[in-house]
Design a protein around this nucleic acid. Structure first.
Lengths: 331, 331
DNA sequence: CTCCACTCTGTGCACGTTCACAGACTTTTC
DNA sequence: GAAAAGTCTGTGAACGTGCACAGAGTGGAG
């Protein structure tokens, strides 16, 4: 059975295609009589507009593509994605836009994304966890509006973004640890080609100054396993440390495992601070003192930016949102 | 600058639209000379086929929609989704299909999904965590191929699926606990309108028989908080329990918190078994003995089913994959 | 009454593709 | 050597919509 077209609706309502189209697209100038006749015809026929046909003439697709640049294995280990995806779907649905997801982990993926976007199949691009120097950014060109949740390092001026104030958050944690009387405070950072990696270290250094020596800094890659490794490294280099600020809760969970294995009690021997206030923060023992990012708001503000660009704004400002210290038992 | 069309490519290659189209769609009968001329023209012009125009004539959209039926707040708290999403994107990309995500948490969402699918905007539907009696299933109609990752209760015969053998997994765990000499074994189940909720309890009862009295069974909703609550309930009703099988790792983490607060040591006083072998299983203290589901294979087999249906298979068989006991320290 | 502004409606065209068909040329078969 | 089969190509007609335009009707101002 064929799907009804705008033609069928027009016929059933006793008007012409043009009038139905006007009603559908919210134009002025549709008489009340025509309006109700058409509405009835639509519900009788079960008509749904054909997006392909519409796209063909409007040159818009009604599609936003979310590009996940994280290497595949790590994808979604970060619980922050969940919120973003949920919010994005919801905000787009309100505007009758749909969200398509693409991966950009290797060269082939990247090429597919570029073809897709440059081929005009998306009205907008939503970048997630794009690393510094990712060739994708320039390959996308500037025809299609693009924003990022979290800054894209080196492209802050070309890709608008909404982010938490990572540097502030790190300062809050560092100050808290100092205030608790800790003397030898170490840090486990994220990858140094991500904003969270860089800026959380900067905030840490803001407070600790020269005490943030490289002996007290180790690097992880956001995964739990890397947290374990980095903690092992730190204990070797600086056995006398009495606190560690870990740039993500997941890595902090790893660090806790290492500390426990090394016989250090938390928080008595070593205070541990996390970052994210994700769900793991409450399931570790002891629960993590951490820095909360306003994830839902970050996601919403990112969508605000994207929708504004789609609506034709020529310039939008990045958004930086404050973080909040959450004190539990690990520090 | 206008995007190049198939016309431009044809002109540049000195052939007609038809020939270019044939090459693009892999038809036979394109001469080597034409082929190479066209290929060069395509790369010179940067031509990308216009999907809207193609859809219009082929009546296919190149789009699969993944419908997440979980109530919004719980979405993605379950780490299993990650794998499915990743695999789905990858498998679809191979076929040049794109994945759009939709939520189906409330009535409005559901209506949007139905309009989308019945409006012919998707070539296939991928159901996730659809609960028993969800009106969405029948509302979707049977025109568009649909499959589910995990069975849809009551619709097993109409919606093909791939799943882990929940019942087997529960039996494995129950047998293990019994084998360890545990006498009073309790269980925390998932929601009883999900296959994991029902079948993991059935497997438990298979082994425990009449000992699986209702006094020893409490229900959760997969969240960590519900695990805490259910454990509290069990301790009140049966203070002498010496083991508990929890139907998900996340809920098990909650149960551990409650047990610790109640002063019970794990595994000495109470053995705890989880389910999923998700990432929390290794970050709890002690690490969880749990049941591993072959997530990646479940996802892949689900996609196999969907792609087979899209390719015109009239009937496909459900797939049930074995689980595996993973022994750590909690039991 | 005339003119004008405003409201409302129908019509033709274009969007970029695939597909069926017809026709030209080449190779095989008897 | 003719007929048949196989290979390759171009052309016109859809697919279903939005938009520009023209035109019809209505009501108010002068």
């Amino acid at each position: 059975m064929k799907r009804p077209t705008i033609h069928d609706v027009a016929a059933a309502a006793g008007v012409s295609r043009g009038t139905v189209s006007r009603l559908l697209n919210g134009d002025r100038y549709v008489s009340p009589a025509a309006r109700s006749a058409i509405e009835q015809a639509i519900s009788e026929t079960g008509y749904v507009v054909n997006r392909a046909a519409r796209s063909l003439v409007t040159q818009r697709t009604g599609t936003i593509v979310m590009v996940l640049s994280e290497p595949h294995e790590k994808l979604f280990e970060d619980p922050n994605y969940s919120t973003l995806i949920r919010v994005a779907i919801r905000r787009l649905a309100e505007r009758d836009l749909s969200l398509v997801m693409m991966l950009s982990g290797d060269e082939g993926d990247r090429e597919r994304v570029v073809r897709y976007v440059r081929g005009g199949h998306a009205d907008g691009v939503l970048l997630v966890s794009t690393h510094a120097g990712d060739p994708l950014v320039s390959a996308l060109g500037s025809v299609t509006p693009a924003v990022s949740c979290g800054a894209v390092i080196g492209r802050e001026s070309v890709i608008p973004y909404a982010t938490a104030d990572d540097r502030l958050g790190a300062r809050q944690m560092a100050e808290y640890l100092v205030g608790q009387g800790r003397r030898r405070i170490a840090m486990i950072t994220g990858p140094m080609d991500t904003p969270g990696g860089i800026q959380r270290l900067e905030g840490f250094a803001d407070v600790l100054g020269r005490k943030a020596s490289s002996k007290l800094v180790a690097h992880g890659d956001w995964t739990q396993a890397s947290g374990e490794r980095a903690m092992t490294e730190l204990l070797e280099r600086s056995p006398d440390l009495d606190a560690v600020f870990v740039a993500s809760d997941l890595m902090a969970a790893g660090a806790l495992t290492t500390l426990r294995a090394a016989g250090r009690s938390v928080p008595d021997d070593v205070a541990v601070g996390g970052f994210d206030d994700s769900s793991v923060a409450t399931s570790t023992l002891p629960p993590l003192t951490t820095v909360r990012q306003p994830l839902a708001e970050m996601a919403n503000r990112t969508m605000d930016l994207l929708l504004a660009l789609i609506d034709g704004a020529e310039q939008v400002e990045p958004v930086i949102l404050p973080t909040e210290l959450v004190i539990r038992e690990s520090a």
